[in-house]
Design a protein around this nucleic acid. Structure first.
Lengths: 107, 107
DNA sequence: CTAATACTTAAGTAAATACTTGACTATGTA
DNA sequence: TACATAGTCAAGTATTTACTTAAGTATTAG
């Protein structure tokens, strides 16, 4: 199971504001690398590196047609992240239920 | 709105396997700092630093009683994270719906 | 063909991160 | 009282990360 590794990549990718901004823009539809770079105060090369991190995290998918690489959203990374969070949630909710039951029994 | 800053902290905190392991163990109930440290191959000081990152991300809460600091789960960070993910999801689902509608009209 | 566009690649740098060590401070325990 | 436990604090170090610059390669437009 290399999932732990994958989840690390997802959360790391989302832990940077620039990368989240990219994801937010791509949520509204695919964009080229240079379109993504335009509003950002950094070089194209830096943006490309951010996109690579997002792609490694399964949050974004890219495809090159001609000389332009188009960046679109991928669900895999989001699914991994929300699944992990949901798992934690179910654990501590179950625990709180047990605590509640114990308190009920006491009264 | 300092939320962007907060979300960065949440995802950064979750982007480390050691810290996720801590969160996973705390999901089953509160633990002291040294209990948390026991299975980990690093010094107590390092574990404390990880816990501080988790606390800054709102994923964990700690309280000191006597000489032992007890670490328990906090929902705030999880809520922030899953909210951000849900927002993205609703955006691209809406977009896919529009695309579907357009395809329907064409046929 | 030529020139601009849209990246790509490699290498370097500054700052952040994940640790360590060691010395210290409380707080329980024998 | 003395000793162990549980954590705190400050520094230092090694690696990783977020960039930059500069020189290249395709691809498309004039």
């Amino acid at each position: 199971m290399r999932t732990a590794h994958d989840i690390t990549r997802v959360f790391n990718a989302l832990g940077d504001p620039t990368r989240r901004a990219i994801v937010e823009r791509v949520s509204n539809g695919p964009l080229s690398v240079s379109d993504l770079a335009k509003p950002l105060k950094m070089t194209l090369a830096a943006v490309v590196q951010h996109i690579q991190v997002l792609e490694a995290g399964g949050l974004v998918r890219t495809k090159k047609a001609g000389r332009v690489r188009t960046c679109s959203l991928q669900t895999k990374g989001f699914d991994l992240a929300s699944e992990w969070i949901a798992d934690r949630k179910s654990l501590w909710e179950r625990r709180l239920d047990r605590l509640g039951a114990m308190l009920d029994e006491e009264s």
